[in-house]
Amino acid sequence: MSNDSIETPRIRPWTLTTERIIIAGVLAAITIILGIVPNLGFIPLPNAVGNATIEHIPTIVSGIVAGPIIGIISGLIFGVLAFFRATDPFFKDPTVSIVPRLFIGLVSWAVFAGLVRINRDLAAAVAGFAGAATNTILVVSALIIRGYFPAAVIIPTVIVQAIFEAVIAAILTVILVRIFYVLEERVVHAPDKKPREQLPY
């Protein structure tokens, strides 16, 4: 509902509401957009493997703002999309492309829910980092278990990219979660972060 979500006490994490279903739908649409708009879903990295992806960020955000069930649903959609769109042969294996993705939103939600009492920004940062790390670790593990690559080869290859992705995810998650709550709480004015003389406005 448009106005009473603020007044009602927080909905329990494992329940589904219409609003949460819509959040999942909107974020799934953004996942699709990140996949189909050229240059939007990834950051070109100057290394051998190529690009750092940010496609998992909507899934992380969905877990944080809409709870574990929506987190899993978003992960499933992300995984199925990855499965169908993959040009990389190993991602045509559902155990690599789909299964690991189910846990991204779940982990992000758990981390955020655990830390939010300390500080919301901190919780979002750690949840973003953990979500991205879950993605990398589980996908890489699946690649190793399925015998596509030996561990000694793949881990050194992706480690830089993995850390970079996790850091980017942490930063973006903080920004996005902050915006979500700014909208939710209908705040009008932003605080100035620097003295006036150092701002361009």
Partner: peptide, 15 residues
Amino acid sequence: ALVMVLVIALKFVPI
């Protein structure tokens, strides 16, 4: 719910 999520996602992509 999962199916409704898909329907909503498909609605928003062109937008």
